[in-house]
Amino acid sequence: MRSKTTIEIYAYWDELRGHRDVPARGQIEPAHVRHILPDLFILEKTPRGEIRFRLAGTRICALFARELRGSRFDALWLGEQTTRIERIAGDVMAQKAPVVLTAAAIAGAADPLASELVLLPLKSPEGRVDRIIGALVPLSRPHWLGATPVNFLELGAMRRLDMDAAGVLLQNRPATSRPSHPRPAADTSLSGAIRRVLHLRVFEGGRRD
Rank of each mutant, 00 (worst) to 15 (best):
L139R: 13
R201K: 14
A114D: 08
V118L: 08
D187N: 00
R131G: 05
I9R: 04
A75V: 09
Q171G: 13
L113A: 03
R34A: 15
V118G: 12
A97W: 11
K96S: 13
T58Q: 09
H19S: 13
P184C: 04
P98I: 01
V33G: 05
P138W: 11
D130F: 03
A103V: 15
V22I: 08
G134H: 05
A56C: 11
V202H: 03
R20P: 05
D111F: 13
A175H: 14
A147T: 08
G79T: 13
V197K: 10
R173L: 06
P174Y: 12
E116Q: 05
E15F: 01
A94P: 00
E8N: 14
S180Q: 01
P38V: 08
I106K: 14
A193H: 08
P125W: 01
A62H: 03
I9P: 05
H181K: 14
T188F: 09
P121F: 00
M1H: 11
A94H: 00
K45L: 13
R173P: 04
G134K: 07
S3I: 11
D21Q: 01
R84Q: 14
G57Q: 09
A97E: 12
R207I: 10
G57W: 04
D162S: 06
Q81R: 12
G167V: 10
P179E: 06
I28C: 03
G205K: 04
T46G: 01
S71L: 15
R178P: 09
S71C: 12
A107W: 02
Q95I: 11
A56P: 10
R173Y: 01
P138T: 07
R17N: 01
P182S: 08
A110V: 09
I60L: 14
D91G: 10
W144H: 13
E80H: 13
G167L: 08
L68T: 01
L43T: 02
A97D: 14
E15N: 03
H181P: 05
W13H: 02
A186C: 10
I36T: 02
I132Q: 02
Q171T: 13
G70N: 00
D209R: 03
A104M: 15
I106W: 09
V197Q: 06
G90W: 00
F41M: 03
A109F: 09
V22W: 07
V33T: 09
K4F: 11
P30I: 01
E15G: 02
D21A: 10
P112D: 13
F41E: 02
F203L: 13
A31C: 11
P179R: 08
E29V: 14
I133S: 08
L113E: 00
R2C: 14
R54P: 02
H143W: 10
P112I: 10
S124Y: 03
L136D: 04
L190G: 00
R208Y: 12
G205D: 07
D187T: 02
F53L: 04
N172L: 15
I88A: 03
D111G: 09
G108W: 05
G26D: 13
V99L: 12
E80G: 06
I133M: 07
Q27G: 08
A110D: 15
T82S: 15
A109P: 11
T102R: 10
G134F: 04
M93E: 00
L155W: 02
H181F: 10
T148Q: 05
E8I: 14
T148E: 11
T6Y: 09
L37C: 01
A193R: 11
A24H: 07
V100S: 05
L119N: 00
T82R: 15
D74C: 15
G18K: 10
P179D: 08
A166K: 03
Q95G: 12
A104P: 07
